[in-house]
């Protein structure tokens, strides 16, 4: 990666991404995804959590060509393709937004806040956007 990498840093860390923003309005959701995919390419242990407005990224039947953007829903499928297996969705965030599992792009692991708390505590690094 870097020529600075000569010292004895760990080769693998546990990195958690909290994707907390709705798609399209701002690019936070896109940036979060790009960072996670990069970590997966370099074989890090990646956790990906959809929280708050981030769950709107998972709504099915997105068609962003209407606003000249790439459909983020399609891009999210790449998370699994890149080997990111621990993808979870905060159930409270869905409930607060009247979203049900059947409204989503696919099947996701629904989790509660205490599980997310535990996840970020045991991670080496957390990106939250």
């Amino acid at each position: 990666m870097s020529d600075k990498a000569a010292n004895n840093a760990p080769l693998k860390k546990s990195i958690t991404f909290i994707s907390r923003s709705a798609p399209y309005g701002r690019d936070n959701s896109q940036l979060c995804l790009e960072m996670a995919l990069a970590c997966a390419v370099f074989e890090q242990n990646v956790n990906y959590v959809f929280l708050d407005d981030g769950v709107y990224q998972l709504v099915g039947a997105q068609n962003a060509s209407a606003i000249d953007a790439k459909t983020l829903g399609n891009a999210l499928e790449t998370l699994e393709l890149y080997g990111i297996e621990n993808i979870c969705v905060d159930e409270d965030s869905l409930n607060q937004r009247n979203l049900m599992a059947k409204d989503l792009l696919g099947e996701f692991k629904l989790v509660n806040r205490s599980l997310i708390t535990a996840l970020i505590r045991q991670s080496d690094c957390v990106f939250n956007l």
């Binding site: 907390r20 409270d92 806040r113 997310i116 708390t117 505590r121």
Partner: peptide, 8 residues
């Protein structure tokens, strides 16, 4: 509120 729900 979001931060508080994840505090320990």
């Amino acid at each position: 509120a979001s931060c508080a729900s994840l505090l320990a």
